[in-house]
């Protein structure tokens, strides 16, 4: 199993040279968990209403959260490095 990202490394130009930031990406997991728990009853309700009215994509609201979790957990290794003279930007999920 892949390890989820723990840190987010950002590098961007500032007024005096470049700034490097190491953000604790692992903090997003508890935040996301809370948001998921808050959203879950609403998504369930939406799915039930859509199922009641026989809307074809009634299950879609229930699929959203697992998919979002899946994507967030698999960001480790994602790197975007843009080089432009004096304006280099780096986004790296570590």
């Amino acid at each position: 199993m892949n390890q989820p990202s723990t840190m987010l490394h950002l590098k961007f130009p500032g007024a005096s040279g470049y700034h490097g930031l190491w953000l604790p990406f692992f903090l997003i997991y508890p935040i996301l968990l809370v948001i998921s728990l808050i959203l879950l009853p609403f998504l369930l309700l939406a799915a039930m209403i859509m199922a009641f009215f026989e809307i074809s994509y009634a299950l879609v609201p229930l699929k959203v959260l697992p998919l979002v979790w899946n994507v967030v957990f698999k960001t480790r290794g994602l790197t975007v490095d843009v080089r432009k003279k004096g304006h280099d930007v780096l986004i790296d999920f570590v």
Partner: peptide, 11 residues
């Protein structure tokens, strides 16, 4: 001038 993107296959 240069863009370098590495995307995990799992993603």
């Amino acid at each position: 001038e240069k863009v370098n993107i590495r995307v995990p296959v799992a993603l």
